[in-house]
């Protein structure tokens, strides 16, 4: 699989602040890639450099092989971009704005008409004659995704597309993004973990200007979190905790508020055999034995949340 985005040693310094600190990242073509990080991690800066709005202090970025500094025209021809706070000519209608955007890509006539109609339909804005100034945030965000698709881009870059939306608006935009799977590469920055879990197949976690993890979703969870078992027993839990902490395949134990134990393990098969056995050996009763996946939120907090 070829790379849609290749970032190497990307650094951006604003005065004394190091917004990006040697970011290395590869986004495979065809993926829906979540670029996850807390506010201020450097997600927007990365997207601004990739789209030619800002220059790196050091390092390089390539989009489908085109250098983002030296070949901005070639990059722009390949991408669709939605900034975190999109600004519109509010006197235009959605139809007019999409025609303007298409015109900048050299589209005209029937080709432009057809694409505008299709995108208005995708954004749920067909027949809306209100000027953009009168739109809700959700409508503006859906229009934002639509305008970013006007050139049928090979790479769609979305900066926090759902952060300011209510639950319905979020769902609508995420549905739009999910519908693009297999049609284009989506590079999607956010700090909302649930959005990434819902639509992305790959993810990178950025913290303080550095990529701290990058992998497929399932691989990331197993690499950083493994599996988890929730146990509810009768009897002396501290004794069980002491016993489990000695096992090599146990990576963490947390006693939940209701007394249950959450045991994180690195070897699922070993845990499936040994956990019930350990409970039996200690003469405890087993009321609940519930396997479950580590959520992305837990991985995220584990990777970036510890020092906050």
């Amino acid at each position: 699989m070829s790379a849609a985005i290749e970032i190497s040693g990307l650094t951006k310094v604003y005065g004394a602040h190091r917004a990006l600190d040697g970011v290395d990242l590869e986004v495979p073509e065809g993926s829906v890639f979540g670029f996850l990080g807390p506010n201020g991690a450097g997600k927007t800066t990365t997207l601004r450099i990739l789209s030619g709005l800002a220059s790196p202090t050091a390092g390089s970025g390539r989009v489908f092989g085109h250098d983002v500094v030296a070949s901005t025209s070639a990059v722009r021809a390949e991408i669709g971009f939605l900034p975190d706070v999109p600004g519109y000519y509010e006197w235009m209608t959605a139809d007019e704005f999409l025609r303007f955007a298409g015109g900048l890509f050299g589209l005209s006539g029937e080709a432009l008409r057809g694409r505008v109609d299709a995108l208005l339909d995708l954004a749920g804005l067909t027949g809306v004659q209100t000027r953009i100034g009168g739109y809700s945030r959700g409508m503006k965000q859906r229009l934002g995704v639509a305008q970013a698709l006007i050139n049928a881009p090979r790479l769609l870059m979305l900066d926090e597309p759902t952060s300011a939306l209510d639950p319905i608006g979020r769902k609508e935009v995420l549905d739009m993004i999910a519908s693009l799977r297999g049609r284009t590469t989506v590079f999607f920055s956010t700090h909302i973990l649930a959005d990434v879990e819902r639509v992305c197949d790959r993810v990178a976690i950025l913290d303080r200007g550095r990529v701290v993890a990058a992998a497929e979703m399932t691989e990331l969870k197993s690499r950083y979190g493994g599996q988890r078992f929730v146990l509810e027993t009768t009897g002396d839990a501290p004794v069980l905790i002491d016993r489990l902490e000695a096992e090599a395949w146990v990576t963490g134990i947390t006693q939940l508020a209701d007394g249950r134990l959450s045991v994180t393990v690195s070897d699922v098969e070993a845990a499936q055999r040994a956990l019930p056995a350990a409970i039996a050996v200690l003469g405890l009763g087993l009321k609940r034995f519930e396997p479950g996946e580590i959520s992305l939120e837990e991985v995220f907090v584990d990777l970036v949340g510890g020092e906050r």
């Binding site: 789209s51 722009r76 021809a77 991408i79 900034p83 600004g87 000519y89 900048l104 890509f105």
Partner: peptide, 17 residues
């Protein structure tokens, strides 16, 4: 005003020099 309002960003990330 176009820079402040964000309209320049939407226009200039397209093939407009």
């Amino acid at each position: 005003a176009e820079k402040r309002g964000g309209t320049a960003i939407l226009a200039l990330t397209k093939p407009l020099s």
